[in-house]
Computed example of a mutant assay.
Amino acid sequence: MPARVLVLAPTRRARTETFVRANLARLPFAVEACFGDEVPWCEPLKALYGLAVLTSKVCTRLGWLRLATCPTSLVALLLVCRHRPDVVMVEFGFHAVRVMELARTGVPLAVHFRGADASADRYVKHLEQRYRRLFQLTSAVIVKNQTMRSRLIALGAQPAQLVISPSGADEQRFQGATPASMPPRFLAVGRFVAKKGPMDTLEAFASLLGLSDHAEACRLVMVGDGPLLPEVRERARQLGLEQMVQFPGVLAPDAVVKEMRRARVFVQHSRTAEDGDEEGCPVSVMEAQLCGLPVVATRHGGIPDVVVDQQTGWLVGEGDRRAMAEAMAVLADRPDLAGAWGAAGQRRAQARFTVAHHVDQITTLLNGLVDHRR
């Protein structure tokens, strides 16, 4: 009989949380999931959970951090009594502090940190004492990269608790790119927020046009939306790039794959935002490498774990638009190099950075917690 796992997460509906849904779909357990933004009246306990999360958010906004833990932890305790899980996994550290007292039941608690929850000031500084309490109660902590691991150890997590596991890319979907045969078309996929550096990517592309022998053929496609989209779109207009830069908005995964198959290079200028927000291990970068694209990106977060500089792509410093432009220019003029790096990146991603690898790691971890409890 498979182990029973109760998953608690803040949301299922956000477009960017595809990795959470991938976990739920592939975990080989009897999974029961509750989401903080859902109130299904046909399931009273889950509805109560959604209301408790709303109450917790209000308490947090008012600065009543200890009180914010009470309502959601209480309902989580009821969920544990109802479903009798062998282990509980909570998505995102900021959500885990809402329910952490359920660990008093003796059921192992695993917490999955993703990125901003382990870097942004609004979480790390605001919830520092709550995080310290959380790490006293958790049995395991999943993180995305070594930097995140070190930061959580400084906040009280025990090294033995921590497991580094990138979310991985969908190996069943992301494949088929042939960059060597494609025109110099650059692709960026991600939210238009500070840590994704969309303005840096645009400015680098603009500089590329003065460096490449094939400038007239170069194009940039920036997929996604977010608060910085109007500003980036306006800057493209100011630079006279309306015919060379496309903003198709948010695309479905299959449409993203089609864009990757039309591209020569994937680009992402991730950087630390003013509030400290950092990437974990960007899924879009893993998707691009798995598909067979070379990647031009920054030495940020978990990106250097995925992209090997001068072997599967080109890494530059955060904020170094000129270096990014030069890297893009080389690949615009060298389709053979783009093809070689893309193929090398694909082989490496297939061996290390798929959703299957991530799910296997999580499965092994949760099974270990269940066996230890038994």
Rank of each mutant, 00 (worst) to 15 (best):
L369F: 13
E17Q: 10
V355N: 01
R235V: 03
K57H: 11
L228T: 04
A188M: 15
F174C: 04
T272C: 06
R321G: 04
Q161C: 11
G190F: 06
V39E: 13
P198Y: 02
A9R: 09
M199W: 01
V265F: 05
D371I: 14
T272P: 06
V87W: 04
T364W: 10
V306P: 02
R133I: 11
E101W: 15
A169W: 03
E279G: 06
R151G: 00
L109T: 12
G50Q: 05
P2R: 10
E287T: 07
V232P: 02
V143Y: 05
R15G: 08
L290A: 00
H126V: 14
R322S: 07
V97Y: 13
G249Y: 09
V111G: 04
T272A: 07
A118K: 05
G342V: 09
K57N: 13
F353E: 08
R4A: 09
Q310T: 04
E274T: 09
Y49E: 07
Q310G: 03
Q246S: 15
M286N: 02
M148D: 08
S270K: 11
C81S: 13
G342Q: 10
D117V: 10
H83E: 12
A177S: 13
K125M: 07
Q129Y: 08
Q346S: 15
M222D: 01
R130W: 04
R130L: 14
H357K: 06
P44M: 11
L62V: 10
K125H: 07
P159Y: 05
S119C: 08
T69S: 13
G319V: 09
A22I: 00
H300Y: 10
T363R: 15
P159I: 03
G280C: 13
Y123K: 09
S207P: 00
E274Y: 00
V265Y: 05
L79Y: 00
G342Y: 06
D254N: 11
L220N: 01
H95M: 15
P85N: 00
G190Y: 05
V97A: 13
H126Y: 14
R374A: 15
M260R: 14
G226I: 07
R271G: 02
G106E: 10
E242H: 00
R26V: 03
V245S: 01
P85G: 01
L337T: 05
L24E: 13
Q158S: 12
S139H: 14
A30G: 11
D320A: 06
R114S: 05
G240E: 08
A30F: 04
E287N: 10
L228P: 01
F94R: 09
A96H: 10
Q350S: 07
C81L: 13
P253R: 08
Q136F: 00
A96P: 08
R130N: 11
L251K: 11
L134R: 08
M324P: 01
R114D: 03
R104K: 15
R21T: 11
I142T: 08
G197T: 03
A329F: 09
P10F: 03
V306Q: 07
T312D: 04
R84Q: 15
K46C: 02
D320S: 05
H358E: 09
Q246L: 11
V359T: 12
M286V: 09
